[in-house]
Amino acid sequence: MAGFDKRVASYEEAMEGIESGMTVIAGGFGLCGIPENLIAEIKRRGVNDLTVVSNNCGVDGFGLGILLEDRQISKILASYVGENALFEKQMLNDEIEVVLTPQGTLAEKMRAGGAGIPAFYTATGYGTPIGDGKEVREFNGRHYILEEAITGDFAIVKGWKADRYGNVMYRHTAQNFNPMAATAGKITVVEVEEIVEPGELEPSQIHTPGIYVDRIIQGTFEKRIEKRTVRS
């Protein structure tokens, strides 16, 4: 590996340096666009006391849900944590701290974290329990609460195609939180379906420029569907 070549040869190498107690920001919405193999590698390593930042926490037996099996997550910031019996059990037993965060605020916390903005004002959550204890300011007659940015020790991201330099494109709605997560990790690891040569991706179509990406790996994905709805 040299210069801008971000490729790593194994998932073990991809998650090298992750330790217990770290904060991990994960892309994905439900089971769509989740870095499933990077999550599996975190499970294999057995690190624990993790703070996870992700819109959801997977399902029983898949996605981030597998990190609950050995109690590797001690705290999670998420907007919605249903569909997961083990999660509910750990939440009710106070084995996991849950910081419910409005979805748009969560996305913006990641975006701000990656963009060097330490905090921002939003009307979302004003007058609700989410605003309790947060600074309030009035702009043009409307109330806003101060929300702080998030950065992670690691960001784990699922892309579609990338080049060796770490320029990434996402596919359809598997984009979701991935581009923001990619900007907000001290170490950003992206797993993709295909790695191509520099020059093969149209520069103006890149979603995540390689400057944000530290490691890239090509994997195979189950891409499980959470709610299969079809018309006849």
């Binding site: 009710l92 409005p102 979805q103 748009g104 989410i130």
Partner: peptide, 10 residues
Amino acid sequence: LIKGMGGAMD
């Protein structure tokens, strides 16, 4: 059981 607000607050 509290499952979360998703995008409703935004």
